[in-house]
Amino acid sequence: GPGLTDLFKTEKAAVKKMAKAIMADPSKADDVYQKWADKGYTLTQLSDFLKSKTRGKYDRVYNGYMTYR
């Protein structure tokens, strides 16, 4: 089956995709945050998933999740 690194890459891609969806349409934020909360994502995990070469690119999404939880 898929190894943990593959799983991480898949999760990371999914999280980034959802983060971009929030940035494009902030009204989606609560739905996405709820999904992440259901998956039990911690802020540390989210921070790892949303690492970007562009500093602060996903800060709004991260901060939103922090206040959501």
Rank of each mutant, 00 (worst) to 15 (best):
L4P: 10
A37W: 15
G3M: 13
A13G: 05
K20M: 11
T5E: 13
K20T: 06
D6A: 11
S47W: 09
D31Q: 12
A24V: 10
D38T: 10
E11Q: 09
T42R: 02
G64R: 03
A29G: 06
S47F: 09
A37K: 08
P26E: 09
L7Q: 14
R55C: 13
A21C: 12
A13E: 10
K57A: 06
A24T: 08
Q45P: 00
V32L: 05
V61D: 02
G64H: 03
P26H: 07
Y33S: 01
W36E: 01
A29V: 03
L50G: 02
D38K: 09
D31S: 14
Y68T: 02
K53H: 10
L50I: 03
W36L: 02
M18A: 13
K51P: 04
K51N: 09
K51A: 10
D25E: 06
S52K: 03
A24L: 12
G56Q: 05
D31K: 08
K53M: 06
Y41F: 07
L50Q: 00
G64M: 03
K53C: 09
V61F: 02
N63D: 08
A21E: 15
A13I: 13
R55L: 15
G40V: 01
D59F: 09
A37M: 15
I22N: 00
Y68C: 02
V61S: 01
V15I: 07
A37G: 04
L43W: 04
G56K: 05
L4G: 13
M23F: 05
D25V: 03
K9P: 06
D31T: 10
F8K: 08
D25F: 04
F49W: 13
K35Y: 11
G40D: 04
T42P: 02
A37D: 05
V61A: 05
D48P: 03
L43M: 10
G56L: 04
K35C: 13
Q45K: 08
R69D: 03
D48N: 13
A37N: 10
D30A: 12
K53G: 14
R55W: 09
L4H: 12
N63H: 12
V61N: 00
Q45Y: 03
K9D: 13
P26V: 05
G3T: 11
D38G: 08
Y58C: 02
R60P: 08
E11T: 08
F49E: 01
A19L: 02
G1Q: 11
Y33I: 01
A14C: 15
P2H: 13
N63C: 15
L46D: 00
M23R: 03
D59E: 12
K20N: 14
Y65F: 06
Y68P: 01
K57N: 05
V15K: 00
K53D: 15
T67N: 14
A13W: 10
F8R: 08
R69Y: 11
R60K: 14
G40I: 01
Q45C: 05
A13N: 10
P26Y: 07
L4F: 13
K17W: 08
T54D: 14
R60A: 14
Y58M: 02
W36K: 01
V15H: 01
V32Q: 03
P2S: 14
G56C: 07
E11K: 03
D25Y: 04
P26K: 05
I22C: 05
K9T: 06
D25Q: 04
M18W: 08
E11I: 05
V61H: 01
L4R: 10
G1N: 09
K28V: 14
K57T: 04
S47K: 15
G40M: 05
F8D: 08
K9Q: 09
L46T: 01
R69P: 03
Y41W: 04
Y65P: 00
T42H: 03
R60Q: 14
T54N: 11
K16E: 06
T67C: 14
T5Y: 08
T5R: 11
K28A: 11
K16Q: 11
Q34E: 09
Y58K: 00
L4T: 11
A13P: 03
K57W: 05
V32P: 01
L7T: 13
L4A: 13
A13M: 10
T67A: 15
R55M: 11
K12E: 07
D6M: 06
R69N: 07
D48G: 13
S52M: 05
T67R: 15
N63K: 15
D48K: 15
F49Q: 01
K35I: 13
V15L: 03
W36I: 02
L50W: 03
W36G: 00
M23C: 05
Y33R: 01
V15P: 00
G56N: 10
K51C: 15
Q34I: 05
A21K: 06
A14L: 14
K9M: 07
D30Q: 12
D38N: 11
D6E: 11
D59H: 05
T54I: 12
D48F: 09
K57G: 04
V61E: 01
F8H: 11
N63L: 14
G56A: 04
G3P: 12
V15R: 00
Y58F: 06
S52G: 10
